[in-house]
Design a protein around this nucleic acid. Structure first.
Lengths: 294, 294
DNA sequence: TTTCATAATTTGTCCTGGACAAAACTGGAT
DNA sequence: ATCCAGTTTTGTCCAGGACAAATTATGAAA
């Protein structure tokens, strides 16, 4: 109400204190008021504006340009960057789901997902329902057409549905084992979970570590569980240029016997590298033949 | 393995860069080496040590005392403060579980959890099994006795077990609705999930947003779903000083009708504030009487 | 014209060292 | 023992400077 201290702005926007101070010095924006003590006090509008700026920066724009624009101009720019794609017939079911989500009909949304899972089977459910939905939600988010909390709800419900399906699958021991995780800084779990479903359906035993495992621990986990492969997922939000170093670092630490699989929309521009298998989409997982275990 | 930059230390310990630099100046610890550029470079051991320090600070010890102690001494201190509660027979089951985890017997571990869930019922399972396990894992982790990946696995399996139990509970419409989430920067979900279980058992309808929801979106979610309360969880890793501003900010934006509930170990040193209900432990959730809905 | 290496600019992160308030401790006085 | 005032400890913020990594602009060679 009175105003927002810099630490909270940092949390809410993801822009560090250093960055906020530098922007103020360099671009004269944001220009917070000061309290008695001389500490910066931001307004709610400034925080909203900064969040819009942050979102566009992830699309590749630079602060010098964005910081001189008004909130309306930012919205316009956002709209112009996303060319919405048209839809098939199968997509109608998907957009219906999206409607439920935006109508805050959580119970119906969850039930509808479950129903689809049962009728399609896990594989089709992942490929034809969850994946397109995730794409649509991601696009709607970057256009600002959907709230963050709605996106959170979607991720949570989808993830929980997939997990439940996964738990129900029992595999004999001795099958190939795959470690699944993301590198630190990559917090998106849904793609990884979809991959886990497909790998499991192919008979692999998935050891799901969740997100943001330090590379040292990926190696340790692979050793501890005698893994045959390590699968990493990179979302579009992950800085492209950090992917290659991360993969190479891991490759150098990991036993050559153990395959590295990299997937997710983030890797589409990645070039082929020896010892690293790129799986650019979910379909390619389907074709992947796991190294069989001992 | 070369060394750890200050930003990573901040992320892994929850100690801000400012604090790390001040400690170095005031207590001569930690004393990182410097790279060519003059930037601080911390060792693995220093990070482990700092985590143990952080953990004990939450119990009320002050840095001046802790920073002059060795890791062993810290562990001893930890043990002396913990030992009080672990005498029951129930505790033996818990440490047995921990053994399974560290022996990498994932399948057995998951099965054992499920069995306990069935035999204890959800409430006891949360309070007597998952919570103590989480504490033990947290302590072992902060002392470097357990690997990050093992902690990840634990969180993942525990979370997935709890979710499954939650899904199985059906509630009539019209019950009080509670939004559950964490503020940006707080990525720990397990405590929140345990809270969700207990709230649900008390008859509340939990809208689980997952972690790191910006305060603006918490407000929007509360409005969209006509929530009666918002519950936030703060782990020990969250910077203590940022809790109060975050809560007050939310309080000022949220309709007075809507209660704010704050829980988690991070909150133990928080003072009472009007309009914010502190739930320092799981037992207090049990006593909490939700505002009844319309 | 295109390609590509080099130079210039932009941008984020880290540094030092100082100021200050809120929290935690201290030692009486009640 | 309990409480209040004074002291010490501790975390956060500030300014302004340095530098490298990333990005864009430039110009020579193909």
């Amino acid at each position: 109400m009175e105003g927002i201290p810099i630490a909270v702005v940092e949390q809410e926007t993801g822009l560090s204190k250093d960055v906020l101070r530098k922007w103020e010095a360099r671009y004269n924006y944001p220009l917070p008021t000061r309290n008695l003590h001389g500490d910066r006090v931001y307004s709610r509008d400034q925080v909203t504006h900064l969040r819009a700026v942050k979102r566009l920066m992830e699309k590749g724009y630079r602060p010098s340009r964005l910081l001189s624009m008004s909130l309306d101009e930012l919205a316009e720019l956002t709209a112009s960057t996303t060319a919405t794609q048209s839809s098939d017939q199968a997509a109608s079911a998907v957009s219906e789901l999206l409607g439920l989500l935006q109508g805050h009909e959580l119970i119906k949304f969850r039930a509808a997902l479950k129903r689809l899972l049962q009728s399609q089977g896990l594989k089709q459910f992942v490929q034809d329902t969850v994946a397109p939905l995730a794409t649509m939600v991601g696009e709607a988010w970057s256009e600002g057409k959907i709230h963050v909390f709605e996106e959170h709800l979607f991720s949570d419900i989808a993830a929980s549905t997939l997990r439940q399906a996964l738990e129900a699958i029992d595999l004999p021991e001795g099958n190939p084992r795959i470690i699944l995780t993301t590198v630190p800084g990559e917090g998106h779990a849904l793609g990884l979970l979809m991959a886990a479903c497909l790998f499991t359906l192919k008979g692999a035993h998935c050891i799901y570590l969740g997100t943001e495992t330090p590379s040292e621990d990926i190696v340790l986990a692979a050793q501890a569980h005698g893994a045959h492969a390590v699968a990493l997922s990179f979302s579009s939000a992950f800085p492209v240029r950090q992917i290659q170093p991360a993969l190479l670092d891991l490759r150098s630490r990991l036993d050559q016997e153990i395959e590295i699989l990299a997937g997710g929309v983030g890797i589409t521009r990645q070039k082929k590298t020896k010892g690293i298998l790129l799986l650019p989409d979910l379909a390619s997982i389907d074709q992947y033949i796991p190294n069989q275990g001992a």
